[in-house]
Design a protein around this nucleic acid. Structure first.
Lengths: 241, 241
DNA sequence: TCAACTTGTCTAATGGACTAGACAACTATT
DNA sequence: AATAGTTGTCTAGTCCATTAGACAAGTTGA
């Protein structure tokens, strides 16, 4: 919970304070049900005006992270951050089971397109080769935790999109093509701010941070099956290698 | 390069534009030497005033990412983002060699302290046990790429700090204790905004994004050696699993 | 009941973010 | 030499972020 007073390039103070408090909550320093320090104390700690602190708390309340009760204080509502395990055998559903009650995945559509240089290289195809592109959104207990775009060779999976819309799990769709097992060949992790569409789809406060993972899955013989670009809200998810 | 016009929670427009352009540059869409679209075109693309775009470009110029030339245009100066490989055998120096000319690590001091619950759990110690804490900063070709804090059991490495200040490489210091080999047991990756001290030490634009890695290294028998908390500027580094 | 502490709401003033328009200075092409 | 396109600089105005102070309204424990 440390934030400076001086000019802090383009990020409003109320937002930095909200980020700092949220970090303490999802990072485990504050547990569910804990009372936050009073607005006056927080204002002093962050060297800010009480109104500015109130605005930060209003944002966190909007997100459902904290809740204020007049006369009593402000309390932590939701604390835990989900851990998504990444390894040779990486499965979305298995990885998060036990951390959330309900895991759901939605298909946001699919189309056929030509591979860019990056995608072709990842899938060991010629640039311009036909690929299937699918868009998806995953939710844990109703909260969006991942927005992913996946490209697959059209030659291997011509109707992947249609099948995914019905089966709703990558593993099952691969299975329907006779692929019993697959594994993770490489994962590339970066971070950036969410853009407008991601902010909307993931129900994030504007300007939120995303963990971005680029992953290639291969079959038992090492042949590339899919190239996936997944965006996780950093405030709700962490990646464990 | 997509940014909306409407209220975008606490992050100034000039900063979002700077982030978007920087993302295109370090992400590879724009190569070193390329000319950016003119300020007028960028202003239209981002639905912003030319002055606002100029402010974003000024920030990127300050960072050394772009350079403006009157009458000609604005050009990309530095493009590439470093890839830090993470696996069972993770070594900072080996991982980045070939991607930068000069790799240097500085020790920022060390001290003995008592393990918090988190650190004790990671190192398989009792909470409150004595641990050595070391602070470090790593640079690639003079640019800071990592700020790390490492905790080690005092019982095993009582004078780790002193030795690290002289040898300047973790691997070498472990070697000086007779530990020929060690490996990575777990890595936890998250992301957040840089705080003020990190902004200063890593020479970042205020409000920059950090990739945060929490890693436990173990010896050949699986005994925990160190718990490291590393912060990488997301605009300069990506992690590859 | 009272006192101390909490969140909720209002007004007012200041500085920065952003927009708008105009013109100067420089470069490349015709 | 002329022209179109670029970056550099100035003025002016509007809106939002932030500070400051005051008081209302609710809770808790002495």
């Amino acid at each position: 919970m440390t934030v400076s007073n001086d000019a802090f390039g383009g990020v409003a103070l109320w937002r930095r304070i909200a980020d700092a408090i949220r970090l303490d909550i999802v990072g485990g320093k504050l547990a569910s049900g804990d009372r936050l320090p009073s607005e006056a104390v927080l204002a002093q700690r962050f060297s800010a005006n009480r109104h500015t602190v109130r605005r930060a708390l209003a944002v966190l309340a909007e997100e459902g992270v904290v809740g204020a009760e007049q006369g009593r204080g402000t309390f932590v509502r939701r604390a835990r951050r989900l851990s998504y395990p990444i390894g040779r055998r990486t499965r979305f559903r298995e990885g998060l089971s036990g951390q959330a009650e309900h895991l759901t995945s939605q298909s946001l559509g699919h189309r056929i397109e030509n591979a860019t240089a990056t995608i072709a290289a990842a899938l060991a195809l010629k640039p311009g080769a036909k690929v299937v592109r699918t868009e998806g959104l995953s939710l844990a207990d109703g909260r969006p935790v991942s927005r992913s775009t996946t490209w697959l060779p059209y030659r291997l999976f011509p109707d992947f999109g249609e099948r995914l819309a019905q089966l709703a799990s990558m593993t099952q769709v691969f299975g329907s093509y006779g692929i019993a097992d697959y594994s993770r060949a490489s994962t590339r992790i970066s971070a950036r701010h969410a853009d407008v569409e991601e902010t909307r789809l993931l129900s994030l406060a504007p300007g939120a941070i995303l963990l971005v993972s680029e992953a290639v899955d291969v079959d038992a013989e090492g042949g590339p099956l899919s190239y996936a670009l997944s965006r996780f809200p950093a405030e709700r998810m962490e990646l464990v290698v």
